[in-house]
Design a protein around this nucleic acid. Structure first.
Lengths: 193, 193
DNA sequence: ATTCATTTTTGAGTTTTATCAAAAGTAAAT
DNA sequence: ATTTACTTTTGATAAAACTCAAAAATGAAT
C-alpha cells in the first residue's frame, strides 16, 4: 500500500517507529491529490495541516507590498506547511500553492499531538525532523546573509537541479531575495560562460 | 540553588518536566562562568555542548573571505551552540565567543541523547525548543529576504533593545547582512529624524 | 495556424550598498 | 595626561540591484 512506502521512506531517513506506532500513524495520515496551481492555505487561514510531498511540488509564499515572495519550495520527500501558523496556531501569513499536480500525505496537528503524546518514538521522529528543518533554515540564512545572488542561485540549483523547469522565474527570484529581472540577467550571464 | 531556577524558567517557557526527569537533568547540567571575549568553540572543533545563557551574552560567527560574519546572538535565556556541528556531529564552521562576562548552563550532547532516550517528557522539551528555534530562524529569513536594512535593524532592536551597547557595530552589521559602514550611516540617519 | 494571456528578457536610468581610505572618537594602560 | 589599540564615522567612487517600460518568447485554447 502507498502509505507504507511513504512512511518507510520517512522513518528510514529520520528515525524508526515501532509497528504499533506505525499502525496508528497509518490510520491517521491521509493521501490527498491536488491539481496544479491550487491553493491549499490562504493568508488569514488557521492551518492545522502538515503536508509531505509524495509526488509533485508546492511552494509557500507571502505578500509584501502587493508582491508575492516565495519562502519555501517542497518537492518529492519534502515537508511543507504554513510553518508559523501550524506551530503557533495563529492565522497564516503564508499561502501554500501547488506548482504541479501533486500527491501529498497530510497529517493534522491534533493527530500529531496525539501521536507525540502517546508514542515516545513518534515524539523522537518529530524532534529529529524539526531539527532537520531547522538546519536547512540555518543554511538558508547563511546563504541570504552574505552570498552573492549568483552563489545563492547555484546552491538552490544544487538542491533542486531542475527547479527552473518546475517553478516560474519570479517565484525562484523572490525565494533568492532578488527581482525576477535580476535573476533573468544572472541566468543569461551564466549561460554565456 | 541556581540550577533549579534556571530549569524552572526553561520548563515554564517551553514544556514541563517530571520531578524524576528534573533531578536527572540537574545531575547532568553544569554551570560555567566565562570571561568576556573568550572563545568557546573554534572552526574545525567538534562541538558537543549546548549553551544556555543565564547571564551575559555571546555570539556565533563564521569566517568568509577573511571577514567575520555574525550568525546568532544569545543573551539572557537564549540557547546557543555551533548548531550544525552539534546536531550533525561534524567539525564546526562557527566560532562561539562571549560578548561579556557570561554565566552559561552547559549540556553535553551525549547527556541530551541519554535524557531524550530515557524520558519522554525531555524528548518533548527538546522537540518544542527546537521548534521554537526553527520559528526564530524562519522569521530571520523573512527579514533577510525582503526587508530593507533599516527594517532589519529595527526588528533586531525590537528583539534586543540595547544590543548596540552589548555588541560591537561590526558584529551587528554582519548579522544584518550589511557592512559596518552602512550600519553606521543607517544609525546616524535614523538619529537625525 | 492564429490569437490571447502569461512569462521571460532586454534596456535605460536611479537607488542602494560595497569598497577603499582616512579621520574622528573611545577606552584602557602606562 | 599621553600613548596605543580599537571602534565608529565620514567621504568618494564603484558595483550591484532595483524600478519602470517595452519587446520577445512561450504556451494554451480556439
Amino acid at each position: 500500500m502507498m502509505l507504507d512506502e511513504i512512511l518507510q521512506g520517512i522513518t528510514q531517513n529520520i528515525s524508526p517507529l515501532s509497528a504499533v506506532t506505525l499502525a496508528d500513524v497509518k490510520r491517521l495520515a491521509k493521501i490527498r491529490e491536488v491539481p496544479k496551481n491550487e491553493i491549499l492555505v490562504r493568508e488569514g487561514d488557521y492551518s492545522y495541516e502538515l503536508y509531505y510531498v509524495v509526488k509533485g511540488g508546492a511552494r509557500a509564499y507571502y505578500l509584501k507590498d502587493g508582491k508575492t515572495i516565495s519562502d519555501w519550495f517542497a518537492f518529492e520527500n519534502d515537508f511543507i506547511s504554513s510553518i508559523v501558523s501550524f506551530f503557533l496556531e495563529v492565522p497564516s501569513q503564508h499561502y501554500i500553492e501547488t506548482l504541479e499536480d501533486t500527491t501529498f500525505m497530510v497529517l493534522q496537528l491534533k493527530d500529531i499531538e496525539f501521536l507525540c503524546d502517546k508514542y515516545h518514538d513518534f515524539e523522537r521522529l518529530g524532534r529529529l525532523s524539526t531539527t532537520k528543518t531547522m538546519l536547512q533554515l540555518q543554511q538558508r540564512i547563511v546563504s541570504l546573509q552574505f552570498k552573492t545572488s549568483k552563489e545563492r542561485y547555484d546552491s538552490l540549483l544544487e538542491k533542486y537541479p531542475k527547479i527552473e523547469l518546475r517553478a516560474p522565474l519570479g517565484d525562484i527570484a523572490s525565494y533568492l531575495g532578488i527581482t525576477q529581472e535580476t535573476l533573468s540577467r544572472l541566468r543569461s550571464r551564466k549561460n554565456r560562460i
